[in-house]
Design a protein around this nucleic acid. Structure first.
Lengths: 94, 94
DNA sequence: TAGATATTTAGATAATTTTCTAAATATCGC
DNA sequence: GCGATATTTAGAAAATTATCTAAATATCTA
C-alpha cells in the first residue's frame, strides 16, 4: 500500500467529500460531480488521485464510468494509524 | 476536532516520521531534528502544523521544548475514518 | 550581565497542487 | 457514420506548501 498516496489523497476536502458521497453506493462521475462547484476536468483530476491511492475503483458502464469505494483500503488505513500511534493495550508495532 | 488540519498534517512524510519518532516517548525539538536533513527552522514549521492539528503537545523544560504525542487524537482520527468509510457490520454513521 | 545553546518567527524562493480552458477519446442513439 | 453526451488528458495559471537564510526570543552557565 502506498502510504504517501493515501494520506495525500485524504488531505483534500473535495476528495474526502467524494468518498463520503460514495458511502451510499457506486455513482457515475457525473452524479458525483453534481454536488461540487468545480469543472469536470478538475473532478477528474481528483478521481485520478483517489484511484492512484486505490481508495476507489472504476468500471465503465457504457457511456458512463462508475466509481465505488474500495473498502479494503480502509483496513489498511486503520493499520497504518495503529502503526503511527502508540497502542494503549499492547506494545507498538514494528 | 479540525478534520482538515489533521489530514493535512498527516499528508507530509516528514511529519509522519516525526510522529513515529515520538512513539518511543517525548523528545526535545533538537532530538527529533537529529533524524532529519532539514534546517531547524523547517522542522519548527512542521512542529507548528502538528501542533495546530493537536497531534502533538509541547512543554518547555528550561532551555528545551519537549514534544509528545497527543494520543487522544488517535481515537478521533479513527472515528473520522469510520465516518468516512462504510462500516461492515452496521449501517454507516451520520 | 554576556556569551552560548535551543527554538521560533519573518520574509523570500522553490516545489507542489488545484483549478481552469481547450481538445481528445469513448460510447450512445439515430 | 454523425452528432450528442460523458469523461479524461494536456497544458497553463493561481494558490498553497516546504524549505531556506537571517534575525528574534528564551533560557542556561560562567
Amino acid at each position: 500500500m502506498k502510504q504517501q498516496e493515501v494520506f495525500k489523497a485524504m488531505a483534500d476536502p473535495t476528495r474526502r467529500a467524494i468518498l463520503k458521497r460514495l458511502q451510499g453506493g457506486p455513482l457515475t462521475a457525473g452524479e458525483i460531480g453534481e454536488a461540487f462547484d468545480i469543472t469536470p476536468a478538475s473532478l477528474s483530476h481528483h478521481f485520478a488521485v483517489l484511484k492512484h491511492a486505490d481508495l476507489v475503483r472504476t468500471e465503465r458502464r457504457g457511456q458512463y464510468i462508475v466509481y465505488s469505494l474500495n473498502s479494503t483500503v480502509f483496513e489498511d488505513l486503520a493499520r497504518m494509524l495503529m502503526d503511527l500511534f502508540p497502542t494503549k493495550g499492547k506494545a507498538g508495532g514494528k
